[in-house]
Amino acid sequence: MTEQLAGGAAFPDLRGTSVFITGGGAGIGAALTEAFLEQGARVAFCQRSDVTVFCDRMETRHGNRPLFLQCDVTDEPALRAAMAEAASEHGPITVLVNNAANDTRHDTLDISSDEWDDLIAVNLKSYFLTTQIAVPGMMEAGGGAIVNFSSISYMLGMAEMTAYTTANGGITAMTRGHAREFGRDGIRVNAVAPGWVLTERQLRLWASPEALDDFLTKQCLGRHLEPADLAGPVLFLASQASAMITGQCLAVDGGVVTTAA
């Protein structure tokens, strides 16, 4: 099913596949976009900020330019238009990766109702909407794979990010429900729950030396996660290498939690 290529696993069935990634131009999302491009997939992604420079770099490096569709995943009409354009350019979306997220810290006693709604819209509602949009095309194509990004933060009961942890618990529940709902249509739905991945945002905002040292003591493996560490698990769940895996939540965290509860 796989073969070694450029230091990693190759998944031949992903070549030419129409892939859509939310938040695919920065952080973990950028690593996922590059990983699918390297497999020869036709990748479209949405991102709020202008990441044309990233797309230029990907085209130069891989000879395969991703389709960048600038939109906010909380803007439903814009999201529907972006996914329609992706399907028009690349064919029906048969791999959907819900990666966009906002883990802004907040105190429960201080967060406003509007702020709560905004965080849930990014972290949970957008995952439901993209699935609702993509599934009909997957049904027509005879199947597909959805990979949702959850987080071990809700398994650990982390404080000061209740909207984010609540959404990620919901993502895991939604993943299991959708796996059951769409399984007979040949659509697999799984989740990945990363640990603390040291993206540029994490390093800028929260990764003090003390926090890094403390978190590393919680891991079995002795180094911090990088965005590229999520690429292999996502490629596996998107490909036919995981043909009989659905409804699962895979913790990719260096061994912090021992079950994807």
Rank of each mutant, 00 (worst) to 15 (best):
T33E: 00
F128H: 14
A6E: 12
D103F: 11
F11A: 00
P233W: 01
P194T: 01
A31M: 07
G27V: 01
H106Y: 04
A9S: 12
A193R: 04
Q70A: 13
D118Y: 10
L198T: 06
N64W: 05
R188C: 03
G255A: 05
A121K: 09
P77R: 12
T52W: 06
I21D: 01
Q70H: 07
P194D: 02
R176G: 04
I28P: 01
C71R: 07
G144V: 01
A121T: 02
M174D: 10
D13E: 05
F149C: 06
E181L: 14
F54D: 04
N123L: 03
E34V: 03
I120H: 12
A207V: 08
E89K: 15
D103A: 15
T162F: 10
A82G: 08
D56M: 03
R57W: 02
R105C: 00
L96M: 13
E76Y: 12
N168V: 00
V97D: 02
A6I: 00
S153I: 01
A251L: 03
A167G: 09
A6H: 13
A82D: 07
Q240G: 14
E85R: 15
G23P: 11
T60A: 15
P12W: 01
L212N: 04
I187V: 12
P92Q: 12
D50Q: 07
G232P: 05
L250T: 02
Y154G: 00
E160L: 12
W116Y: 10
L67M: 09
R42K: 15
E38R: 15
D253C: 02
F182V: 07
M158R: 14
A41D: 06
L96C: 09
R184Y: 02
D72E: 08
A44N: 01
T258R: 15
E226Q: 15
A9N: 11
N98G: 10
G143L: 01
Q219R: 14
G255H: 06
Q70C: 09
E226F: 07
V147I: 14
L79P: 11
L225V: 00
L37Q: 11
L119V: 10
R105P: 00
V192L: 07
A121R: 12
A41W: 01
V197M: 08
Q4G: 05
T17K: 14
S151P: 06
A191I: 03
F236L: 13
G169A: 11
D103Y: 11
F128Q: 10
T246D: 05
Q47S: 07
G7Y: 00
L203S: 11
A251K: 07
A101D: 07
V197F: 08
N102S: 14
G144K: 04
L67Y: 08
Q132A: 10
A231H: 02
H90D: 03
A134H: 06
V192G: 09
L67S: 09
A228W: 09
N99R: 03
A100W: 01
R61G: 05
R65L: 05
Q240E: 14
F236G: 08
G144I: 02
E160Y: 15
G8C: 05
S18A: 15
I111S: 10
F54S: 03
A26T: 11
G255W: 02
T258Y: 13
R15I: 00
F68C: 10
T74K: 09
G137E: 04
I111T: 13
E226D: 08
L109K: 13
K218A: 09
T130V: 03
S151E: 06
F215A: 05
V135T: 14
